[in-house]
Nucleic acid binder design. Structure first.
Length: 598
DNA sequence: ATAGGGTTAG
């Protein structure tokens, strides 16, 4: 492979290049390395220019463009040599700190600016606010103080400061504050729109994101590639396939498909909206694919239950000379755990650090707990969490709790729920799992104990909700809708449906119903009006025969609904694609893509 | 010398 030879020192000789020796800075645009910069700097010393603030600022700016440890050290050295820096110099140095991911230093520098009696200007705030944003919620206080200073110096309405303010609040987990800043702008530009739309998309508020996306179009403001990313991610959150397709058309029309990131967001949107085929075709048509695009495909195959394809994507990616990142590994480990490939999963987990130098994060450990737990290696999973180098989250224990539940291990489940309660006792779902486990073991006193505990602590279970999009309208159904109200056409249709299912061998699994003191018939009705059954029945009634039914559920699919969906796909010859909170289930011809392993 | 960014366990 040919490498670009580094420029020989002589090339910087002013006589050979006939360069104005009084202006060594004219060499800066051609400068490509820190070594060359130091040579230019040598000239500035010769010509007594190194005390010129403007010159030093330019040298420092060069060092901070693509910061490395040595270039930042050099910038610091240059900065320290100046006795009376001006605002511009402070700004440049501060931006360097922000870029080199040392946000705290950037903020300390701002304090120096104020103490020196200098005035911050419109260049001062963007990088400082970005520093706060990069630290997340823990920097909200600092961010608010900077906001106050921006107001004090009359810069809060500046066209460059506004979007960073919005972004800072959004990244520091206060999207509503971000919105208040946005709403005060009289004529928001597309960057401010992007900042707030992205904030909503990232905090799982897709409806607000999309309504601002519509507002932007009504105002005839031209969206950018960044707008497309957030709009697509909102569709992905909602599972809104039709809207996603519309945005895809829009992207093609305005040529946003030349951006790799937009294509990656399209892959993710199609995968999350249940159309794996479309995701694959976007990927196949991409001319340039980066690590992120490959990762999106690994995740897509994994969540659709095609573990082996996810793994082969990973192998092909390596052949394409791209290195996996932490997200690629999440997808890969996820694929292994949902396909039951325990040994492979462990091997990949260890190779992360040993071969690729990626330190496993809390989510990777989560995958490992799931992997071992599903395989019934519950004690190993428990030990893994207990010996974690990082503080476990309740989610990690909850993963193990659901493994205990599927393996019927009440003893361990009781230990695990204690560990969960140490961290969070407000999650109704945990009590329900325990109480159901106790019911299955016939331990009715324990059932009452956990039910009472849940009531006393005011812990609530999120109600199950399933939605289905038909002709651009999203219909939502809640679990138990109609159990106590007058029956409608939908309920009558569902009653008929259950009769038909029973004829082909369906037996309602009432052991999954939580309310222990109900009569069996009552339990069966509760089960019958589960949100996913209501949504599927609605889809059967309102779409032409043979159409695929796509349902999105907010929780994990219930076991009884899963059996029912398999039978429905068989007797009505319909494909049903159900997205639950963690994965996809493709029902076809009486079978599910998850192989009943979820 | 100035802004906004997709993929993330259950």
């Amino acid at each position: 492979m040919a490498t670009t030879p580094s420029l020989p020192i002589t090339q910087f000789s002013p006589t050979k290049l006939r360069i104005d020796t009084t202006n060594p800075l004219s060499l800066l645009p051609k400068c490509t390395s820190l070594r060359e910069l130091k040579q230019i700097q040598a000239f500035t010393i010769k010509t007594h220019l190194l005390n010129d603030l403007n010159v030093v600022t330019k040298l420092i700016n060069f060092c901070t463009q693509h910061p490395t440890t040595s270039s930042m050290d050099h910038a610091q050295h240059l900065f320290d040599g100046i006795s009376e820096p001006d605002t511009a110099l402070f700004n440049t140095m501060g931006r360097g700190y922000s870029r080199s991911k040392t946000p705290f230093r950037a903020i300390c520098l701002f304090v120096q600016v104020l103490n020196s009696g200098l005035f911050p200007d419109d260049y001062t705030f963007p990088s400082l606010l970005k520093s706060c944003a990069s630290m997340g919620a823990k920097a909200l206080q600092e961010g608010k103080q900077l906001h106050c200073f921006a107001i004090k110096f009359g810069l809060n309405n500046n066209v460059y400061v506004c979007p960073t303010l919005i972004n800072m609040y959004a990244e520091c987990n206060d999207v509503d504050a971000a919105r208040r800043v946005f709403d005060k702008i009289s004529e928001p530009c597309v960057v401010s729109y992007n900042a707030i739309i992205t904030g909503y998309a990232r905090t799982s508020r897709p409806n607000e994101a999309l309504s601002l996306f519509r507002e932007l179009q009504e105002r005839n403001i031209k969206p950018t590639d960044v707008t497309m990313l957030s709009a697509l991610s909102s569709c992905a959150l909602l599972g809104a396939l039709d809207l996603g397709k519309w945005i895809h058309e829009y992207i093609k029309k305005y040529r946003f498909d030349k951006y790799v990131k937009v294509n990656t967001a399209l892959i993710d949107m199609y995968a999350k909206c249940g159309s794996l085929d479309d995701a694959v075709s976007i990927f196949n048509n991409m001319s340039v694919r980066d690590t992120q695009a490959w990762s999106a495909m690994v995740v897509a195959y994994a969540t659709h239950g095609q573990g082996y394809k996810a793994i082969s994507m990973f192998e092909e990616m390596k052949k394409a000379q791209l290195s996996p990142d932490e997200i690629t590994f999440l997808g890969l480990l996820y694929a292994c755990s949902h396909t039951g490939l325990v040994e492979e999963g462990c091997r990949y987990f260890y190779s992360m650090r040993d071969k690729y130098g990626i330190i496993p994060g809390i989510k990777h450990y989560g995958c490992m707990v799931d992997l071992l737990g599903r395989a019934g290696r519950l004690d190993e999973a428990y030990r893994l969490i207990d010996e974690l180098p990082i503080t476990p989250t309740p989610i990690l224990w909850r993963t193990l709790l659901s493994a205990c539940s599927s393996h019927g291990n009440l003893e361990l489940a009781k230990q695990v729920i204690e560990r969960i309660f140490e961290l969070d006792n407000s999650h109704g779902g945990d009590y329900v799992i325990l109480s159901n486990l106790c019911a299955r073991a016939g331990s009715w006193e324990d059932v009452d104990f956990f039910r009472k505990l849940m009531r006393d602590r005011g812990a609530v279970k999120v109600p199950g909700c399933s939605s289905i999009e038909i002709n651009n309208v999203v219909h939502e159904f809640f679990s138990g809708d109609g159990v106590h109200s007058v029956s409608t056409d939908l309920h009558r249709a569902l009653d008929e449906l259950v009769k038909e299912l029973k004829m082909v061998g369906y037996v309602p699994d009432t052991s999954l119903v939580y309310h222990g003191d109900m009569e069996d018939e009552e339990k069966e009705i509760t089960l019958r009006y589960h949100s996913e059954k209501l949504a599927i029945a609605f889809g059967l009634l309102n779409t032409p025969p043979g159409t695929t039914i796509r349902v999105v559920k907010n929780l994990r699919v219930c076991g009884d609904c899963h059996s029912a969906a398999k039978l429905i796909s068989l007797i009505f010859d319909r494909q049903i694609i159900l997205r639950d909170v963690q994965r996809f289930h493709h029902f076809k011809g009486g079978k599910c893509s998850c192989g009943d392993f979820w």
